[in-house]
Amino acid sequence: MLESLITSKTRLKLILKFFLNPETTAHLRGLATEFGESTNGVRVELNRLTEAGLLESSQKGRSINYRVNKKHTLFPDIQNIVKKYLGIDEIVESIIKELGNVEIALITGDYAQGIDSGLIDLVLVGNIDKAYLQQLVEKAEELIHRKIRTLVIDQEEFAKLRDKFEKEKTLLLWKG
């Protein structure tokens, strides 16, 4: 659906990358390499998004770093659209409501870095009905056409892995 509204594939990739995880920063060459596209094509779209005020740029040495402008009036709306497009909102709502005692829900891996790889890594902390989780995951995968890999841990295990999660980019979905 979003592809029909945003006809530039490069612009769509940039919007997904920056709006999925607003802490993401990136530079032109890194984005071109990640997307497998020319620097010119990426530069044009970065300039358009920056001129629209959706991205901010800052000079760092010889390169320019880009990040989302969280103060833009459309930021929350675009971020919600991105989450709906990726199906994250549906996953969170359906999982949290029925799973038991979910204390924390995180997305790690590619999606936390703003990369739509087709595999969503979901970490759930709490006392969770794993059989029901599997049913929900299967349904969500059909809805969003992406694979979901889950890790269920308790608070004690989470405490041991906290440093790892803090060093990696993670996207906090829920905290009870």
Results as ranks from 00 to 15, higher is better:
M1W: 07
M1R: 08
S4I: 07
S4Q: 13
T7P: 00
T7I: 11
K9S: 11
R11G: 01
R11A: 14
L12H: 00
L12K: 06
L14E: 01
I15W: 00
I15Q: 00
L16S: 00
K17V: 01
F18S: 02
F18W: 03
F19R: 01
L20V: 06
N21K: 04
P22T: 05
E23W: 03
E23F: 06
T25A: 10
T25G: 07
A26K: 01
H27S: 12
L28A: 05
L28C: 05
L28N: 04
L28D: 03
L31W: 04
L31I: 11
T33C: 00
E34G: 02
G36L: 08
G36R: 08
S38A: 07
T39D: 06
N40M: 11
N40C: 00
L46V: 02
L46C: 02
N47F: 01
N47C: 00
R48D: 06
L49V: 02
E51S: 13
E51P: 01
A52V: 02
G53A: 10
L54Y: 14
L55H: 03
E56R: 10
S58F: 08
K60M: 08
R62Q: 12
R62P: 01
R67Q: 14
V68W: 05
V68M: 04
V68G: 03
N69A: 07
N69L: 07
N69R: 06
K70Q: 12
K71M: 10
K71L: 13
L74D: 09
P76V: 06
D77L: 15
I78Y: 05
I78K: 02
Q79M: 02
N80I: 01
V82S: 00
K83S: 08
K84G: 13
I88Q: 06
D89H: 13
V92N: 09
I95S: 15
I95F: 15
K97C: 02
L99D: 10
N101K: 12
V102W: 09
V102Q: 08
V102H: 07
I104R: 14
A105M: 14
A105C: 07
L106M: 03
I107L: 09
I107P: 03
G109I: 04
D110A: 13
D110R: 00
D110Q: 04
D110H: 05
Y111K: 00
Y111N: 06
Q113W: 02
G114D: 05
I115T: 09
D116C: 01
D116H: 05
D116S: 07
G118I: 04
L119D: 12
L119Y: 07
D121V: 01
L122Q: 08
V123A: 07
L124D: 09
V125C: 09
G126Y: 10
K130M: 10
K130C: 06
L133M: 10
Q134L: 14
Q135V: 14
E138P: 01
A140Y: 11
E141H: 10
E141Y: 11
E142H: 14
I144D: 12
R146N: 08
R146H: 13
I148V: 14
I148K: 11
R149Q: 14
R149S: 15
T150A: 11
I153H: 12
I153N: 13
I153K: 13
I153Q: 15
Q155Y: 08
E156S: 15
L161M: 15
D163W: 11
F165N: 11
E166T: 10
E166W: 07
K169C: 00
T170R: 10
L171F: 08
L172F: 00
K175I: 03
K175R: 12
K175W: 04
